[in-house]
Simulated assay, not measured.
Amino acid sequence: MIVYGHRGAKGEAPENTLPGFRHAYRHGIRHFELDLVLSKDGIPVLVHDLSVDRTTYLKGDISQFTARELAAMDARRNTSSWPTAAGIPSLEDLLDQFDDLEHLQLEVKKDKRPRLNILSNRLTEIIQRRDLYEKVAITSSDTWFLNEIRRRNRNIRIGLVSDRKFPKPLNVATRLNCEYLCINWRLCSKELVSMAHRRGMHVSTWTVNRIHDMLQLEGMGVDSIITDYPTSTRIFFDNRSRTLLNLPGQEASTTAPEPKAEERFRLSPSSR
């Protein structure tokens, strides 16, 4: 099961910032989920909200600021503590930092359609120019946007983001010809995962911050989890693998038994 760092490493460092990604990268994380919004000058930048209000010490919509102005802000407000300032970077700032990332889920938030239209053009161009077809999936809860990406380039992988039972996420993803189904982990079931796999989809669940829940999802057959705590999650699964390898007469397994009560620990909750 693949572990994706949520917004870099949201629970361990400022979300959607280069220091957060570098922190997780140093601990071996090579899969990330992040959020994209279009800046005033038409550049995809890493930020969850449509405004800077929550994560910076300024006020205003992302659409009011250029990428350079956003990069100069301090995005440590209401996020994980960090000793130095961290701005809002562009997608290409992130891509320039690392040359061996294995996969990125690029989630695009709902926005005004003219802005989403420009963003779809920008993302398509970046993926084509950098040949990221195998390393990127563009995800969104906005079905119109996903259709626009598919219309521009059928080789770009797309994924539906859903936290609702109705309309049924798998049916919507099927109609869109998605390669990824990205659902709230509470909606997940073994039957849903099995059906998605039969339709050729990768099932990714968010935001999973308890080891107990991760193990249950693993047992259901999910392909990946998105967590605020990727480095501590990786440590747990690495330690489990080493323990299983050292047990006499046993081989490593991808599915772990039900954890004991003392092995269950809760990390702080979060929304996608």
Rank of each mutant, 00 (worst) to 15 (best):
Y229V: 04
S189F: 08
S162C: 08
H212G: 10
Q250K: 12
Y57L: 07
E12S: 05
D61G: 08
L34Q: 01
T231G: 01
L176P: 05
I226R: 05
D213H: 14
R272I: 11
T79C: 04
D53V: 07
S253N: 11
V3C: 07
P83N: 13
D35Q: 14
L146P: 06
S51G: 09
Y180R: 12
R77M: 06
C188F: 03
E263A: 15
D163E: 09
Q250T: 09
E262C: 01
A13M: 08
Y180L: 13
D74L: 06
S204A: 13
L38R: 13
R122F: 02
E125Q: 15
I183C: 08
A72N: 08
M201H: 12
T56L: 07
G28Y: 02
L91S: 07
V172Y: 09
V52Q: 02
T84G: 02
T227V: 04
V208Y: 02
V193T: 10
L34F: 14
S232T: 14
M214Y: 10
E69I: 06
L187S: 05
S120F: 03
R54G: 15
E191K: 15
S189P: 08
L170S: 03
P14I: 12
Y229F: 15
E251H: 13
H212A: 12
G11V: 02
T255K: 11
I2M: 11
R266I: 10
I225A: 08
K135T: 11
H6L: 10
D74F: 02
L215K: 09
D53F: 07
S270W: 01
H202L: 08
G8I: 05
L34A: 02
R210N: 15
R154A: 10
S120Q: 01
D223G: 08
I183W: 03
T17W: 03
P259V: 14
Q128E: 15
T254F: 13
E33D: 07
G8F: 11
R266H: 13
C188G: 09
V52S: 05
P269S: 00
R113E: 11
P269L: 06
T79S: 12
D93I: 02
W82Y: 15
S268P: 03
D223V: 05
E148L: 07
T205E: 01
P269Y: 03
F236W: 08
V203R: 00
A72V: 00
L187Y: 10
Y229H: 05
T254P: 10
S268G: 02
K112V: 00
S81C: 11
L46C: 01
L95S: 05
K190H: 04
S120R: 01
D223C: 01
T227M: 03
F236Y: 14
H27V: 01
H103S: 11
G5W: 10
P269M: 04
Q250R: 13
A137N: 09
I149P: 00
T79W: 04
N78H: 13
F32N: 03
F21M: 09
F65G: 06
L91D: 00
R234Y: 08
A137P: 04
Q97I: 00
L170C: 08
R264Q: 14
L46F: 05
R130N: 06
G5K: 05
G159K: 09
H6R: 06
K10H: 13
N246Y: 12
R26W: 06
L217H: 05
L267F: 11
L70T: 02
P44C: 06
E258S: 10
I226N: 03
